[in-house]
């Protein structure tokens, strides 16, 4: 009985938070520890319209999750692709007039500019004002990022995000 109550409570809690976005974007199922990185790469700290952020919510898929609702902003594909770097299993919904107008599938871009930092201290991008650029490689299932400048490769989950 206890378990059922908790499940009920969880879905209710989550529903309350997701509800009532008229127009905008909902990013759900963000791992809790990645939530503020997502906030940061979308520059939400300077966004002027309503934003609702929930974190450490219970989740059936991951230990705890975060959710972001952004009013009156429809994320572009290059923005949602950035999210795929940090939280590849997040769910993104574009809401128009209270209805889910689009479920955005996350796909990794083949090239990433700016948001990833090179881990090589002797790389030109870490020493002079040069915008970073990485090539996304798939070596036998393993995701790798290769710095366009110093040509070093780094594993997908070890990448440093600005």
């Amino acid at each position: 009985m206890l378990v059922n109550y908790e499940l009920f409570n969880m879905s209710l809690q989550n529903k309350l938070i997701v509800a009532a976005l008229c127009n905008g974007t909902v990013i759900d199922h963000i791992p809790s520890e990645k939530l503020f990185k997502v906030v940061s790469i979308l520059n939400l700290d300077v966004y002027k319209n309503l934003i609702t952020i929930g974190n450490n919510l219970e989740s059936t898929k991951i230990p705890t999750k975060g959710i972001i609702k952004i009013s009156d902003r429809f994320l572009e594909e290059d923005e949602t692709n950035k999210i795929s770097l940090i939280a590849p299993n997040a769910n993104i919904s574009i809401i128009r007039n209270f209805i889910v107008a689009e479920k955005r599938a996350l796909t990794l871009p083949s090239e990433i500019r700016e948001i990833v930092l090179c881990g090589n201290p002797n790389c030109i991008t870490n020493n002079q004002s040069v915008t970073t650029k990485f090539h996304v490689l798939h070596h036998d299932e393993e995701l790798m990022f290769k710095c366009h400048y110093c040509e070093r490769e780094v594993k997908g989950d070890e990448v440093k995000i600005k």
Binding site: I124, T125, V130, C147, H148, Y149, C150, E151
Partner: peptide, 27 residues
């Protein structure tokens, strides 16, 4: 140049060809 990637960067901004004679421990 002692920094890795210096020649690649130079080749992107230079109107004339760059020949890399060594960029750090890279190429």
């Amino acid at each position: 140049h002692p920094l890795e990637g210096a020649a690649r960067f130079a080749s992107e901004i230079s109107p004339v060809p760059i020949i890399n004679a060594g960029d750090g421990s890279n190429q």
